[in-house]
Write a protein that binds this DNA or RNA. Structure first.
Length: 588
RNA sequence: GGUCCCAUAGCUCAGCUGGAUAGAGCAACAGAUUUCUAAUCUGUAGGUCAUAGGUUCGAAUCCUAUUGGGAUCACCA
């Protein structure tokens, strides 16, 4: 559509002797109730045209009509100049752009970006919050890849610390040697079970100490279990063989479990970082900061940065005993990532509860003069809430990832069987189909909302399969495939068609927008834009499908054209869904 | 208390850097299948865009205040 913008700039120059920037021209899609496909808002031009918006629109419209052969007509309503493009223009768009193999394929832009996501703790299984994180991270990586970036998907596993020691300790004390093999439990769930047991027993101890007269705070500090856990952490840090072995064993269980869940979610990673390897990093950065005078040391030996001038607080970057805190590690890890990959941009897909942490982290790195700090970005997403409020692992009010996936597959199965359309697939094929549809519903449900916004999930209400949903879009794809497979003609070559119906034009128009949507989604790190787009596209296709017969078209040329249009739609739907990490079935 | 985020139909959400009469889906109601997959399509109904000011030719969108909700401000991660 750039040619219209350019021509409009010329029109303004010619008519009103004024130079304007192309950015000053607001091109928008014409609203459905009006004639035309593209609209220019002419209010801003009245300043120098010194005429009414209507007159200004008419003058520009006449200029464009006279100078652009693609334009067939225009109309002006108040300050809106609505432009109609010739059918030939849209037909060319289909043949020369959309059906071209390079359509919506960006050339490499020479930039490298890291997307860190997932980043689980190894003391409990994944829940719905992690699912949102994983799907977001994976989708953003796909979108950036489509936009021409070289993408590195990274996972920073939080595999050490007091919380893991809690699971380990509880297993030692109450586990009776249970293993995933002996119990048949998935490894991450088994470890999570002991995390919950720890918390339960710990609470009992606190209550007991309180009954003996201790305050809540004292009790929390003095409970034997927490002391044992802390001892265990010290032993771990000292490299105690027994503790390390237990840690390794239990982590192996967890990784095995996570691997299965990642697999079902369809996400993967190029690089794993482990906090057990990175938690000591950052100390040299602390030294560097002290030398540069960015940090200061207090009397007790703790090191801080004063961010009050930036509207923030003082922040600790090293404990008085010389050990690292979260911030220290993250400073070091950021440097490590950069040293490893020298990427231009680095995204952290982390919930918005950590907004403050990342604001501080990035600010510190900038103050330290790290040239790469400007490429850091916290992709902050909203929490997933239940109707009862926030999910809390310890209180058991979490929606478990594996359970959720099971339920989605089960629902997909019930829906498919109720419709009774797919009858000739093998058992294996059916299971794959249920997985595809169930995950399609779940992924679309989670990705269609703006990542920044919090998301409400009601476990008692199953995720829809109708309307603005993944299965709706998958269904549209399957339907197209079904028609294409019955085509009975070769539809590879261009037709000489010259006229098309409004629904067909609308569909082509929708298809042409795909590349723009990809770049906008990439710029905003926002899969929801893709989701909303592909939904609109599917709706437009369904309307076309309903109004026009493809295989029974009036003549052969029209039939071929509609097959081509359908094929193009299926391709774009499939690619767009792929950017969301969603598969589309051939039949359903 | 300081800082940050959010508020659009009964519910879940769109609404791009300000532009036309604020749009979808679900739920409700009424229709469409001798025709390519009805997980579809068409229609009806549903709104003081939290409230009050301001900027502008024009505000759901930008600014200020208020109300309501959430997050965060650990020598936890």
């Amino acid at each position: 559509m750039d040619f219209i913008t350019e021509a409009a700039v010329k029109a303004v120059k010619h008519l009103y002797q004024t130079d304007i920037s192309p950015n000053a021209i607001a091109l928008q899609e014409t609203r459905k109730e009006f004639e035309g496909q593209v609209t220019i808002v002419t209010f801003p031009f009245t300043k120098f045209s010194r005429k009414t918006p209507e007159q200004t629109g008419t003058e520009i419209g006449e200029y464009l009509l006279g100078n652009l052969s693609e334009i067939s007509a225009f109309n002006v309503i108040k300050g809106f100049l609505n432009i109609s493009l010739r059918d030939a223009y849209w037909i060319d768009q289909l043949y020369d752009e959309i059906l071209h193999q390079d359509f919506a394929v960006s050339k490499p832009n020479g930039k490298k970006v890291m997307v860190e996501y997932s980043s689980p703790n190894t003391n409990k299984p994944l829940h719905l919050g992690h699912v949102r994180n994983n799907l977001l991270g994976y989708s953003v990586a796909q979108i950036l890849d489509a936009a021409g970036y070289e993408v590195i998907k990274a996972n920073l596993v939080n595999d050490r610390g007091i919380h893991i020691c809690k699971s380990m300790l509880a297993w030692q004390l109450f586990g009776n040697g249970e293993t995933p093999e002996s119990t048949g439990m998935k490894g991450d769930h088994l470890v999570g079970k002991y995390y919950v047991i720890f918390d339960k027993e710990y609470k009992k101890e606190i209550e007991f100490l309180k009954s003996e007269g201790q305050t809540e705070e004292e009790a929390k500090k003095n409970a034997p279990l927490i002391k044992q856990a802390q001892e265990m952490l010290q032993k771990w840090e000292a490299g105690d063989e027994e503790v390390i072995n237990l840690w390794k064993t239990m982590n192996t269980w967890v990784y095995d479990g996570f691997g299965k869940t990642y697999n079902r979610l369809g996400v993967d990673f190029d690089k794993f970082y482990y906090e057990s390897n990175t938690y000591l990093l950052g100390k040299d950065i602390v030294e560097e900061g002290l030398e540069k005078g960015v940090f200061f040391e207090k009397e007790d030996g703790s090191v801080w940065i004063d961010l009050t001038e930036d509207g923030l607080d003082e922040k600790l970057v090293r404990r008085s005993d010389g050990t690292s805190v979260y911030m220290t590690q993250d400073l070091g890890t950021a440097q490590l990532k950069y040293n490893d990959f020298h990427m231009d941009d680095s995204l952290y897909v982390v919930g918005n509860e950590q907004d403050y942490h990342f604001k501080v982290l990035f600010l510190i790195l900038k103050k330290l003069g790290k040239s790469w700090a400007k490429g850091l970005y916290h992709l902050s997403y909203g929490m997933v809430d239940l109707p009862s409020g926030k999910m809390k692992s310890r209180e058991g009010t979490v929606v478990d990832a594996d359970d959720l996936i099971d339920e989605m597959e089960q629902t997909a199965k019930e829906q498919t069987e109720a419709l009774g359309k797919v009858t000739d697939l093998t058992e294996e094929g059916l299971l794959e189909l249920y997985h595809t549809i169930g995950m399609g519903a779940l992924k679309y449900f989670l990705l269609k909302v703006d990542p920044k916004k919090r998301l409400l999930f009601d476990p008692n209400e199953s995720v829809d399969f109708q309307g603005n949903t993944g299965p709706f879009i998958q269904y549209t794809h399957a339907r197209i495939k079904s028609v294409l497979s019955r085509a009975g003609v070769d539809y590879a070559a261009k037709t000489g068609i010259t006229e098309i119906a409004p629904v067909e034009r609308d569909l082509i128009l929708a298809l042409t927008q795909f590349p723009t949507i990809i770049s906008e989604a990439a710029k905003g790190y926002n899969p929801a834009l893709i989701a909303n787009y592909v939904y609109e596209l599917a709706k437009t296709y369904n309307k076309f499908y309903h109004e026009k017969s493809i295989l029974q078209a009036e003549d052969e040329m029209l039939k071929i054209f509609r097959l081509q249009l359908s094929s193009a739609s299926a391709k774009v739907i499939s690619r767009a869904m792929n950017l969301l990490g969603i598969d589309v079935p051939e039949r359903m």
